[in-house]
Nucleic acid binder design. Sequence first.
DNA 1: GCTATTTAGTTCGCGCCACGAACTAATAGG
DNA 2: CCTATTAGTTCGTGGCGCGAACTAAATAGC
Lengths: 404, 404
Amino acid sequence: MRKIDLTSFQVATSETARDINRRIVLNLIRSQQPVSRADLARNSGLQRSTVSAIAEQLIDERWVTEGANGHTARGRRPRFLHLNKERVGIIGINIRPATTTVALADLDAHFVAQESLPTAATPQQFIAELVPRIRKLIKMRPEIACEGIGVSLPGRVDLASQRLVFAPNLGWSDFDLKTPLEKATGMSVALENAANSCALAEIWFGRHAQGVRNLVAITVSEGIGVGLILNHQLVQGSTGMAGEFGHTAIVPDGLECKCGNRGCWELYASNSAAVRYYVEAASSVRTGRNGVRPAGQVPTFDDLLRLTEQGDPKAEEAIRQMADYLGRGIAVLVTGLAPDVIVVIGEITRAWKQIGSVIAEAVKRHSYTRAGTRIVPADPLSQPRLRGTIALVLQKHFGAPSVA
Amino acid sequence: MRKIDLTSFQVATSETARDINRRIVLNLIRSQQPVSRADLARNSGLQRSTVSAIAEQLIDERWVTEGANGHTARGRRPRFLHLNKERVGIIGINIRPATTTVALADLDAHFVAQESLPTAATPQQFIAELVPRIRKLIKMRPEIACEGIGVSLPGRVDLASQRLVFAPNLGWSDFDLKTPLEKATGMSVALENAANSCALAEIWFGRHAQGVRNLVAITVSEGIGVGLILNHQLVQGSTGMAGEFGHTAIVPDGLECKCGNRGCWELYASNSAAVRYYVEAASSVRTGRNGVRPAGQVPTFDDLLRLTEQGDPKAEEAIRQMADYLGRGIAVLVTGLAPDVIVVIGEITRAWKQIGSVIAEAVKRHSYTRAGTRIVPADPLSQPRLRGTIALVLQKHFGAPSVA
DNA sequence: GCTATTTAGTTCGCGCCACGAACTAATAGG
DNA sequence: CCTATTAGTTCGTGGCGCGAACTAAATAGC
């Protein structure tokens, strides 16, 4: 049960009931389509007359279309209702340090067009290069009316100002990305941290999200990000900074981190950590005790994954060590938050066959819970970062109404 | 924004709007009493006519009373509305390993009667001893009609079954406390973990809870418990196990814990840890290198606090070390959850003058956030564990309505 | 002391909405 | 062709918030 926030609440008007039931019906149609009015009434508990009225409104507003007739053993055939995928398009933008992806998605969160560009060095230049791509995408599919832009980025967005306040991996400093983008495109823009985007993507579109109340998304790349969905809701913290578990100490007084802390989880469990483990192991063999390594041989994490697939023992050991530390950090989240599901996102999931059991073992050894949290890899083909931006915009129509 | 849970939702009826606005008005009266209808209309945004209708209903149902007239510079004088404190009484039960406290509270969460009894060794015996005390308390104040019982306990309650599944400090095993208590008293019983109770107490009645969206309560005694309020809502996790940060590793492969993990936070930052630090320091001096200590000299944590107040350097050092580890663990929560407030509860708060800065320093050194989380001690006189049980029952009337 | 002004609170008609009973539509089986 | 069954619509009723108009009660100014 939630406490009512007396500093910011929403009273009910005569239209509130309709708003609530409309959202319920729209969500039922989304998840059960094709579905008849009669089934909607049965599944929602609303009267058939109420469902009909809501359906009429949704059809009028083009959210829903009436399709073919269904079949029943006896009696009049139902008319199926479908979500009108083309009702609104959403522009999703996934900013990563090297590459930015721009895509156009329909209401089902399927991407109908997509392209990439190198991420510019400054936000000003970035906007200048991005806006024409957005325009192009919109023109490609004139039949889909775009209504919003969602942006996922490796950094932090201040809750109150919606300014990008921190993005060390992009090399950008405090900047207002939202206002210029909105001015240039005329569409509303929603910004969100990448890990939070992934969490949204998984809870709205994920395979493991049926009836899930608590979900944790962990993005593993150069660093580690954590997105929290607790009580069906994204946890943003007081300023939008929640989820920086990547910068919590897993080794007290361990390696020094750029963040100022020591022994941060991401120093031990990120892609960069695995590369470091590999390099250390390789150099100690090849160069003996002096520690100097031949230059120009630092492998990428991708190289490591390939070596692992080929059975290279040093690469396997580096990945295994990374997975062990991943598991130790995940154990903290399992013990502390007891979520239903933890979804791991990143290149590392390609090696899930090798690391799945390592992580599970570490979590078992280091956690204390009866929650039975499932730990699963995200499907990289689903593009979680990008798909989360769609959820970000869709929430406005499909999320629970803000009430009281 | 919340995702609608299609496995368990609530449609709106024609009474839903009233339910929502009624709760808003009731909460406004609670927090602003005495208050006039006109002020309620201004502060809520509802029409004066709507507020009057709701007020009439609340007065009819005895939730609210009409009191004296107020004063205005000009114009007709307002009639003040007050919460009717005596409308319902709530029985609060705080179970601790040695002692159980039973209290009767009014709507303002003020205790009008209270008594203690030793906690029995078995839950069966406990209930047999408890029920007569509850009956006595109710008879003492026949003018207050009790409507519910809230229970706070050092253990875990399974979300689905509401059974007590784990209470190592009580020595009780899996047991249904709720059903026999409800049968014996005829009142509904709500059970909750002690740290969660404290979190509820702080968010509903705490001094630092005005407009707070995210609050973390940390109970420090023999162990460490954590209660999480995120997005104005208690986080219980998938089975009610959320908050066991006390059993997350703060020292990898450190001391062995009863929970099966190693290096758990509570092994380094609980009262017992401070006592251990003190004993280790004292024995190493007194007995030299053989490590054998004269028997019968293990001080209690209370002794330690007293010694600290008297300026004993070894006690001070033990407390300081405990506070440092407390701070390191709190840093994890600050970084990972970025709450507005963290409230520390326990005997240790008596030494806040000494440890406040130690904790703040440790948090600063080991955290990474811009949230500006305030770390404050709870007022022990407010009896947070006990008061939380009142919140547990009051939520039913004052919490946000469950909608969609 | 009278009037204008101001503020509190009530009354009442309107429109939105969910409910539920009655009705129409369409289908399969006998 | 008739009956049973299921889908979907129509319409009257009651709950509720809105907002305009109204009553009540106080003060300031003359």
